[in-house]
Write a protein that binds this DNA or RNA. Structure first.
Lengths: 219, 219
DNA sequence: TAGATTGTTAATCGATTAACAATC
DNA sequence: TAGATTGTTAATCGATTAACAATC
């Protein structure tokens, strides 16, 4: 309802709610109940209600939630109602992919600057953005009110890039590099390192496809 | 120590341990304590010890953990000691990026087939892989013992691709598309949808302005 | 031996779920 | 009104952390 300490688990579910709500909106569904959302997302309806109730009374008893109203509210909570400028370092394939995503995004987060330190890339274009050299990072971040930095460089370079982002005054970092980063307390960092997801996925595979008698791990 | 129910939270930390251990290994560090790991990863040392103890007695009292031994053990736990073949659908920039990663990976997970349904892409190469049409998916998966599928197509196509993976007999899916997927119970799905990370990151911006510390708000 | 650090049990903390009065 | 569904409190479940005997 009011200000309580919102746990990270709750915040991480908000974008998921937003995703399914957008799908409903596109199908012109007006109203949805926590039960229906729970079914779609494999979540407990009570959890969904509780999550949303941290931020306000968005639903109507006996009715459910108005889809477009709830979308609007969650966008506000996630600060997507304000323009948030993003910079990206690392103009490889992954960097390209993220910049492309830009074009289709209808929310207010935009990659507004791309950096790389390879001479052959500097000055070339990704979509409508010119790739800039790293020594332009700080001034660009500051002049354009850039608040989030995305790192798509190889692992060993990631810490260095992160440091430069911090130095430039960024508030949050989204890191795609397979690396552990050390950052000051006040910088928020999220990881989008797909190797983590891929390796943990492997854990859940069946024991062995080829039935080759792996002795139980006992010593 | 033995077989207990391992929680997902534990499994998701294993790749992170592996990452930091690999860094230590590269710096030729022989031994590491849970305390040191905890410092690097911002995790409680007791948690790290407990996580590892689910799978065996890997450490030595008074000494710590042997880095290369622990790497080996975690790789076994994650099934990285066996070859795991992966297929990827969606040969865009993101697909390219993941295939490139392949080259540098020294573990046993490999993307061995790439699919796309755009005529202009079919037959062209990514690294050493020829892009195949979707109607070759099932036979390729089955003939090559492919167990994991990666989805890097646009959101609206993702469910369809997922269905085809399931049909082909895949065990797990890593989904990069911004979409909610419905899948049978027995299929493990992990999300690498960066929009989720990016939107939840936005939530944490601008903390400073909200810093007005109003104590216990009760009504 | 003295110091360090594990593996593990017990205590704490936090998150999820159930239940239900309020109410549309 | 009767049926549905919220917001919220209380109960449950699970995960994290502290503490410490065992031992290298």
């Amino acid at each position: 309802m009011k200000q309580a300490k919102i746990s990270e688990a709750v915040v991480r579910r908000l974008p998921i709610y937003l995703q399914v709500l957008n799908e409903l909106y596109n199908r012109e569904v007006q109203t949805v109940s926590s039960q229906e959302l729970g079914l779609k997302l494999d979540l407990n309806p009570a959890q969904i209600r509780k999550d949303l109730a941290y931020f306000g009374d968005f639903g109507r008893k006996g009715i459910g939630y108005d889809v477009s109203y709830l979308i609007e509210k969650i966008q506000q909570i996630l600060k997507l109602d304000q323009r948030i400028n993003v910079a990206l370092v690392g103009a490889g394939n992954l960097g390209h992919a993220l910049c492309n995503y830009n074009k289709y995004s209808k929310d207010n987060m935009k990659i507004v600057a791309v950096f790389d330190d390879h001479q052959n890339k500097i000055g070339t274009m990704i979509n409508n953005l010119t790739i800039l050299p790293m020594d332009k990072l700080k001034e660009t971040v500051q002049e354009n009110n850039i608040r989030i930095g995305i790192i798509t460089v190889p692992g060993p370079e990631a810490q260095n890039v992160a440091n430069q982002f911090v130095e430039a005054g960024i508030e949050g970092i989204l890191n795609f590099a397979p690396a552990i980063l050390r950052l000051p307390e006040h910088i928020r960092i999220h990881h989008a390192d797909f190797t983590r997801e891929l390796l943990s996925l492997a854990y859940y595979l069946e024991k062995e496809r080829n039935e080759q008698e792996n002795g139980a791990v006992v010593d």
